[in-house]
């Protein structure tokens, strides 16, 4: 799966279906093929000694799945969960990981012409985990390469 994604980005065919979600005021998108399911926010069991962005583990129909707080991962201030807070369960390689987001918006089919390469911000913002910027209906969706976001080399505590 990871290999496929790499091929996809390499050949610049970034077009496809994206699940978009919101974090604070920003819209993000993640390849729909990497999304297993979306579940409502539930009690998360904290895991001691885990890095701060690892919120803990949840019970996904009898399976124990670790959950990442994306806000913390992106160094945004954390907020209390709301009615809209969701956990998107993504599949990275053979692992399932939950990602806490503020809200889930929609599924967008974004054409190649609507995707721009991520701008460079120098050292202010790390753009290595971005696929590109999707332009839709007047606003911008940040397309995430979720594999890199959850890259074990980047995140201590997730092996």
């Amino acid at each position: 799966m990871t290999d496929n994604a790499a091929t996809v980005t390499d050949t610049n065919s970034r077009a496809g279906m994206y699940l978009t979600f919101g974090l604070a005021d920003e819209e993000y998108g993640v390849e729909i093929l990497k999304v297993r399911e979306i579940i409502c926010m539930m009690d998360i069991t904290a895991v001691p000694k885990a890095p701060p962005h690892v919120k803990g583990v949840v019970n996904l129909r009898g399976k124990v799945v670790p959950v990442i707080e994306l806000r913390t991962r992106f160094s945004m201030p954390t907020i209390e969960s709301t009615e809209e807070t969701c956990i998107i369960v993504v599949v990275v390689g053979t692992r399932e990981i939950g990602v806490v987001v503020d809200r889930v918006s929609e599924v967008l089919d974004i054409a190649e012409k609507d995707i721009e390469d991520p701008p460079t911000f120098g050292t202010i913002v790390d753009t290595s985990f971005l696929i590109g910027m999707g332009k839709t209906e007047g606003h911008v969706t940040i397309l995430l390469d979720i594999t890199k976001v959850l890259d074990p080399n980047d995140i201590a505590g997730i092996a």
């Binding site: 069991t45 895991v47 001691p48 000694k49 885990a50 690892v54 583990v57 009898g62 399976k63 124990v64 799945v65 670790p66 990275v92 053979t94 692992r95 399932e96 990981i97 959850l150 201590a156 505590g157 997730i158 092996a159």
Partner: peptide, 16 residues
């Protein structure tokens, strides 16, 4: 159950 393959070994915890 194991803590999921996404989770590194947590010292003092054998599973969930």
């Amino acid at each position: 159950k194991s803590l999921g393959r996404g989770m590194a070994k947590v010292p003092g915890v054998s599973g969930g």
